[in-house]
Design a protein around this nucleic acid. Structure first.
Lengths: 150, 150
DNA sequence: TCTAGTTAGATGCATTTGCATGAAAAATCA
DNA sequence: TGATTTTTCATGCAAATGCATCTAACTAGA
């Protein structure tokens, strides 16, 4: 009579779930701490600037920034405004779509991205990569793939 | 000359890192959405209430709540105040330590915890457990253990 | 014991987030 | 085409977070 229920997540799943989020939380907090100590902006800025660089001078629609960074619409809108106000990006009206805004990386923004990366990279290395084997990392990558949205 | 650098995290590590945080972010957002749709408070409330229940009527020091939930000191302080204001917990002065506060779960808090769990549990099941094999879950658990703080 | 230093918790103030809504342009459809 | 719906982005207002600092109590050291 100790058969496994098909209806509930078992103990192990709950523990793994909890650990996953705990690890993510701790790791991100450490990155933010490192950035702060280096006098750099929060990680969210990096994410946006990186997407802008990936757009290779084409400019990125605000809605694309939302999707790629997983920011809520109003957060993307205001974060970009702050980045623009700091001179690290520019907004221009989209030609094809009168509602749209295109965001471009400025040279200052490119420099900021390059300044942030060493700090961010060190965190990824020390708090993550150095503690896992290559095999762990590949396994983790594959397992997590199953959890990506459909 | 294409030897692997020992100084930098490689591409694979960076991708796994990014995926880890992306998955965590998406999954947590889905839980919050489900809770909201059910008219329930945010996940942080659950975390605190659960720790209070685990204290089994002994009461929990605020500082313990901070440590266990990973909340910042001021956030724990104010979140507990909100939970207390809603009648789901009580604060009492700690006997042994004049600075300290002990937080107790009320019966209302216990009921809320029980109300939240089905929604939370369903999220864990559908967005996590159902998409992985038992073996995946164990593997994930073990790999993540290596990333826990020392 | 007196003093300096540390720890637990609260809180004023600025920033950020979340919610709801608005405005303008585009898309759909009768 | 004209009306309706949807999409894109912005924003006022409320709530939550982060920062810095404060108070009170405990601890350690002379």
């Amino acid at each position: 009579m100790t058969e496994k229920s098909e209806e509930l997540p078992d103990e192990m799943a709950i523990n793994a779930w909890a650990r996953l989020h705990r690890i993510s939380n701790i790791a991100l907090e450490r990155v933010e701490d490192r950035l702060k100590k280096s006098g750099l902006p929060p990680l969210a800025w990096y994410d946006v600037l990186l997407e802008l660089r990936r757009a290779k001078g084409q400019g990125l629609r605000l809605i694309e920034i939302e999707k790629r960074t997983l920011l809520a619409q109003y957060n993307a809108s205001r974060l970009v405004d702050r980045i623009v106000a700091a001179g690290h990006a520019e907004k221009r009206k989209a030609q094809e779509d009168g509602r749209g805004v295109l965001v471009y990386l400025t040279s200052s923004g490119g420099r900021l991205l390059d300044e942030m990366w060493p700090t961010y990279r060190t965190a990824i290395k020390e708090d993550f990569a150095d503690r896992l084997t290559e095999r762990d990392i590949e396994t983790l990558f594959k397992i997590l793939a199953k959890l990506l949205p459909d």
